[in-house]
Structures are given as C-alpha cells and as structure tokens.
Design a protein around this nucleic acid. Structure first.
Length: 452
RNA sequence: GCGGGCGUAGCUCAGCGGUUAGAGCGUCAGGCUGUGGCCCUGAAGGUCGCGGGUUCGAGUCCCGUCGCUCGCCCCA
C-alpha cells in the first residue's frame, strides 16, 4: 500500500456503524440531565494555558506534560507586533472551562445555583492504551452555588442513574473526603502525612519521593508494590477532617444510603486535580483493563475564587464516553442498524434516469427516504447502459428498500412506472402523473397501518 | 518517558527457510431477453509496514526503524 495519511496517534475515527452507539449514550445523558434540571453548555475547545495551571494545579501530570499547545500560524510566530502573549492549550479537562464560562458570563448573578452539563472532546498528550486516548470525549455536569452535601448526592445519583440506564453491569462507587483548606483540616492532615512519609522515605519509589515535594496526597494512590504497604498504614484523611467537613461527609453518606446507591469509602482516593475539596468520588468498572474509572468527580469549593470570582462552592463529575462504550453490554440488534430506505429508484437507461432523478427529488420532498444507484457505466462513452436491473435489484435488497421503482423503455414510452414491493414480492404499475402521490401514500400506509 | 506483543488483500486471518503468496467475508460481473435474498462460476485487489543483514534462496531467521496494540506512569 502506498503511504497514506493516518489519523494522529491516540485518536479515533468514529465510523457510521459506531455512531448510533455514541448517539444513544449522548441521548441518555442529555435525558437524565434534563430530568435533574441541568442545562447544556458549550465552551471553546482551547483555553488559556494559565486557566489550567491555576485550577488543575501546576504540579499535576496534566499541566506538567499532557497539554497540547496551540499557537498562532507560522507566519505570525516571530512577529514583534504580535499581541498574543497568551499561551493556548486544547482543553485537558472539562470543569475549569465551565467554571470560567460561568464566571465570565455572570451566570451566578442571575441565579444562586447554576446547574450545567456538557459533552465535549478532551485532549491529553499521553501514551494511548486500552481506554485511554489523546482525544477522548467526556460528558459531565457542574453544579455551582451550593455547598450542600445533598447537591453532591444529586450529582452522584445522576451519574449512577445515567450509567445504569446505559446497561453497565458491575459498576462500583468509591467515595472519599479530602477535607478543606482550613488549617485544622487538610493542611494538618497533609503535615502529618508528610511526617509519616518522610520517615518511610527509603521505602518509597522514586516517583513518590518526588511527590513528597510536589503532591504528597498522591502517594496514597501509588500502585507501586513497595509504596502500597506504606500507603495503607498511612494516616487516614477522614480522621483529620474538621468538624464541618466531617459533617458534610457523613450527611453525604446518609443521602446516598437513602437513595439506595451502594458505595465504598476508599481512603486512598485522592484524585489528581488540585481543585478538589471535601468530596471526591469515582465509578469504576471491573473488566475494563487498567483504565477502569468510567466517571470521576468531586467538590471544588475554591475553584471560582481561584479564578478571581466570589467564593462559590461547586460539585461535578466527568464521565469518559469511550469507557462507557467499552463497558456497555452490546445489545444484539445494535449491529444491524444499517439505514433502511423506503424507495429505491431503478432506471434502466440514461433517458429513464432523467425521470428517476426527478422522482427521487419529489419523493424526498415528501419525506420519503429514497435512493438510487449511482455507479458509473464501465464503458462511459457511447452506451446508454446503466447497471443491469439485476444489479440494481441487488442494491435495492442490500439497502433493504421497501419499494423499487423500475423505469425502462416500456415505462417511458407508455407513461407509467413499475412499482415492486420487496417484502410482499408483488409488483404493479402506476401512471406517471400520480406516481409521487401513490408511492407516498403506500409508504405512509406501510409505516402506519391505521392509515390504510 | 519506560517495558511486552503484533505488522501478509478493503476486513478477519492462514502460510514447516524452498516454484507464479492463500482462505473466508466484502466488492464487482455472469448463471440466455427487464427482476432481489440462497446457491454456483469468475474477476479485480498484495513492492508480505519500511531499511539493512544472514543464506544458494527470506513473508518465514537476525538487527534497526516506523506504526499499531497492551501494560507502567497518570487519568475519563
């Protein structure tokens, strides 16, 4: 094979036979969001690099090495008069852009609680593997303006119902609280954790030693064999929660229990993004391989403030659509959803094709799904021949057309059309003049038998 | 950034170091005049990812390279 253009590493072409699966997931998500009172928002695919540095955290992997940079065109690159000193990146996550949009457009000055959802492409420069791509798609929700744990519960409940509606089996909910920024809460915990890990430094992997400086909470999460036992015996975050965080956490658990959502406390669940406070959660699916988190989220009460707005609490989650698709049990009829058409027009000569094309257009205007064969004759010069009737009938059958309209010399000279019902194996003729009306009526009658 | 596996037709894959590299599916055409599903026949389609090496001889062995894939890291 000659050299061809290939899609960029870690991206996917979603071909027609897969698109229906995507649409069902997206439609289910929109449906559930609607029931919970969330409104769709769409933000740009790229944002200021600083937005993510500030919110996600500049010591996180995402900011350190996973952001795709986008810049001005080559011709503009070195120009002194170029004003854009700002750096732009493809969005590596969904929450910060939504928070930015809420703040920038003053949505919270119109109402005290803003509930939004999004479906968006997310970009991260990583080595692809099963369930991990450089461009993936997330559907997510963000609820800003309330710190009530009932709102945390609502968000989790929404995710839970959505994923169950997608027929995902073997889903587990993991929950934790990483406290708040009050001195007696996370900072105190962090300090004790640091003391503990420094004592065990020799037992830690080299990444974790680095994390001692940058992000000690993440050591809890390390999968390295040597770090695991150390992490397991580390102080637990919930033992350090300040009274307010403790109350929040236990009320959330009450709500979830009341909603009948099974969950498990995971003291090692910290999540990689800096903006989280208090609640963090993940929905994991067994049997997805290494990347088994389908949905993840938490509370981010300091985020809006960090962006220069008023102190505003918020909760949300992001859910990986590709991972949902991997986890969904495929329903049998899902594969055979090739487009079914109502009418296939089969002209036998170029003269007949002129009539056929007119008929096609007229039928489609009547909302009848119609098509014909466009394959070019093998001998384009001279002959009047199109594809043989047999060939066209085969096409019609493959397209699962209900009716085939045959137009040949007989039809042309005597002003009628031959109509064949491919299901009932019957055929009849119709005068040219009322062909469109008759065919339309027949198809509508087939679709809804009560019209017959 | 680091490991493992794999690159043969559009797709899924056979192919013990030895002639002109195969199958199934798909595509196209035919099976007497203008009629579909099944069946039968035939055709098109491959520089065996690329480059080097070993050998009388390489799709097959070795090295490199690129790509894909799985895993580590991290995350959805």
């Amino acid at each position: 094979m000659r050299e061809v253009f290939r899609r960029p590493r870690g991206t996917q072409d979603i071909l027609p036979d897969q698109v229906s699966r995507w649409r069902t997931v997206e439609e289910k998500f929109r449906h559930w969001c609607g029931l919970y009172g969330y409104w769709e928002v769409r933000t740009p695919a790229f944002e200021s690099r600083a937005l993510f540095e500030r919110t996600v955290g500049d010591a996180t992997d995402i900011v350190e090495k996973q952001m795709f940079r986008v810049g001005p065109p080559k011709a503009d690159e070195g120009r002194p008069e170029q004003k854009e000193k700002e750096e732009w990146v493809l969005r590596p996550e969904g929450t910060a852009p939504v928070a930015r949009a809420v703040l920038e457009n003053g949505l919270l000055s119109r109402q005290s609680l803003v509930k939004l959802f999004y479906v968006a492409a997310i970009f991260r420069y990583e080595r692809p593997q099963a369930g991990r791509l450089r461009q993936h798609h997330q559907c997510g929700v963000e609820a800003l303006g309330s710190g009530d744990p009932a709102l945390d519960a609502e968000v989790i409940d929404l995710g839970w119902n959505f994923l169950n509606d997608c027929h995902i089996e073997g889903l587990s909910v993991f929950l934790n609280s990483i406290g708040c920024l009050q001195p007696e809460c996370r900072p105190r915990y962090r300090q004790d954790l640091l003391n503990y890990f420094w004592q065990k430094e020799s037992l830690l992997c080299k990444d974790c030693r680095r994390r001692l400086q940058s992000n000690p909470l993440r050591i809890l999460d390390c999968k390295e064999e040597t770090c695991q036992p150390v992490a397991r015996k580390a102080p637990k975050s919930w033992e350090y929660l300040c009274p307010a965080c403790q109350d929040h956490f236990s009320r959330l658990q009450d709500h979830l229990s009341g909603m009948g959502i099974p969950f498990e406390i995971d003291g090692h669940l910290v999540r990689g993004l800096d903006y989280y406070q208090r609640t963090v959660f993940e929905f994991r699916h067994m049997g997805l391989g290494a990347q088994n988190t389908i949905l993840g989220g938490g509370r981010y009460d300091g985020l809006i403030e960090e962006l220069g707005g008023p102190a505003t609490p918020g909760v949300g989650f992001g859910c990986g659509i590709e991972r949902v698709l991997l986890a969904m049990v495929p329903t049998p009829n899902e594969q055979e959803q090739s487009a079914v058409i109502d009418v296939f027009v089969a002209p036998l000569t170029k003269a007949a094709q002129k009539e056929g094309v007119k008929l096609l257009s007229a039928l489609r205007k009547k909302k009848i799904a119609a098509d014909m064969d466009y394959s070019e004759p093998k001998n384009p010069t001279g002959t009047e021949e199109l594809r043989s009737l047999k060939g066209q009938m085969r096409q019609a059958h493959k397209r699962r057309a209900r009716l085939v309209i045959i137009i040949g010399d007989d039809e042309l000279t005597r002003n009628f059309l031959t109509v064949r019902d491919m299901v009932e194996h019957r055929q009849w003729t119709v005068a040219f003049g009322d062909a469109v009306a008759k065919i339309t009526a027949y198809i509508l009658g087939q679709r809804d038998p009560s019209l017959r």
